[in-house]
Computed example of a mutant assay.
Amino acid sequence: MNIFSLLDPQTVFSALEVNDKAEILNKLVSSLEGTISEGEIERVREAVIEREKIMSTGVGKGLAIPHGKTAGLQETYAAFAILDEPVDYEAIDDKPVNMVFLLVGPQSSNSLHIKLLSRISRLMNNKDFRDSLRECKTSEDIIERFKDEEHVSFSG
């Protein structure tokens, strides 16, 4: 499964305005409202917040990868944001984040969830790729960058 195929212009933001970690999580989860039922959205929100309480998903280098799983989901969904201003996220390197990749999926798909988290981490570890994402002006541009980078990074 490709990361770019999980992204949709409705769930990708090129300059998201937020003040704190809670607002980031709420806005990204809420962006999935068109594809996930209203009741399930709240369970997804709870799962992501509960996961965050265990340990911050701020992985360093300005990136956070919040994630969660619920029994009510049948598919995996994602949202991505470049923040207009960096926000404190209690990241492992104690630096604010400026990019956030949300991944949510079914409780039953542990293996796929871990593979996707690993793939996101590998992609986002590339400084040139992160820099190129910051230059994107639209959600469509961001999705296209992910598509191009996945083709280069994971083909063959």
Results as ranks from 00 to 15, higher is better:
residue 6 L to Q: 05
residue 7 L to I: 04
residue 10 Q to D: 07
residue 12 V to P: 02
residue 12 V to H: 07
residue 12 V to S: 04
residue 13 F to A: 09
residue 14 S to Q: 09
residue 14 S to N: 05
residue 14 S to T: 06
residue 15 A to Q: 09
residue 16 L to T: 09
residue 17 E to T: 10
residue 18 V to Y: 02
residue 19 N to G: 09
residue 19 N to W: 00
residue 20 D to T: 05
residue 20 D to M: 11
residue 21 K to Q: 05
residue 23 E to K: 15
residue 28 L to N: 10
residue 30 S to P: 02
residue 36 I to H: 03
residue 37 S to G: 07
residue 38 E to H: 05
residue 38 E to S: 10
residue 39 G to S: 10
residue 39 G to W: 12
residue 40 E to Q: 13
residue 41 I to V: 12
residue 42 E to N: 05
residue 42 E to M: 12
residue 42 E to V: 11
residue 43 R to K: 14
residue 44 V to T: 10
residue 45 R to T: 02
residue 46 E to M: 15
residue 47 A to Y: 01
residue 47 A to P: 05
residue 47 A to R: 06
residue 49 I to W: 11
residue 49 I to Y: 09
residue 49 I to K: 11
residue 50 E to A: 15
residue 51 R to T: 06
residue 52 E to A: 08
residue 52 E to M: 09
residue 52 E to D: 03
residue 53 K to Q: 00
residue 54 I to C: 01
residue 54 I to A: 00
residue 54 I to L: 10
residue 55 M to C: 01
residue 55 M to T: 00
residue 55 M to Q: 03
residue 56 S to H: 01
residue 57 T to E: 04
residue 57 T to K: 05
residue 57 T to C: 04
residue 58 G to Y: 03
residue 59 V to T: 05
residue 61 K to L: 13
residue 62 G to T: 09
residue 63 L to F: 09
residue 64 A to R: 08
residue 64 A to M: 11
residue 65 I to Q: 08
residue 66 P to K: 13
residue 66 P to D: 04
residue 66 P to Y: 06
residue 66 P to R: 13
residue 67 H to A: 07
residue 69 K to I: 01
residue 69 K to Q: 07
residue 69 K to Y: 00
residue 70 T to Y: 00
residue 71 A to H: 03
residue 73 L to K: 06
residue 74 Q to M: 13
residue 74 Q to P: 04
residue 76 T to L: 12
residue 77 Y to S: 05
residue 78 A to V: 07
residue 79 A to P: 03
residue 85 E to D: 08
residue 86 P to L: 13
residue 88 D to M: 14
residue 91 A to P: 00
residue 93 D to N: 04
residue 94 D to Y: 01
residue 95 K to W: 00
residue 95 K to C: 02
residue 95 K to T: 02
residue 96 P to M: 09
residue 96 P to T: 04
residue 97 V to N: 08
residue 99 M to Q: 12
residue 104 V to M: 04
residue 107 Q to H: 12
residue 108 S to R: 15
residue 110 N to T: 15
residue 111 S to R: 15
residue 113 H to E: 05
residue 114 I to C: 11
residue 115 K to F: 02
residue 116 L to P: 12
residue 116 L to C: 14
residue 116 L to F: 11
residue 117 L to A: 10
residue 118 S to L: 15
residue 118 S to P: 08
residue 118 S to Y: 13
residue 119 R to N: 07
residue 119 R to F: 04
residue 121 S to Q: 05
residue 123 L to R: 12
residue 123 L to W: 00
residue 126 N to M: 15
residue 127 K to T: 13
residue 128 D to P: 07
residue 130 R to T: 01
residue 131 D to K: 13
residue 134 R to N: 09
residue 135 E to K: 15
residue 137 K to R: 14
residue 138 T to L: 08
residue 138 T to G: 01
residue 139 S to K: 06
residue 139 S to T: 03
residue 141 D to F: 01
residue 145 R to K: 12
residue 147 K to C: 00
residue 147 K to I: 03
residue 149 E to N: 04
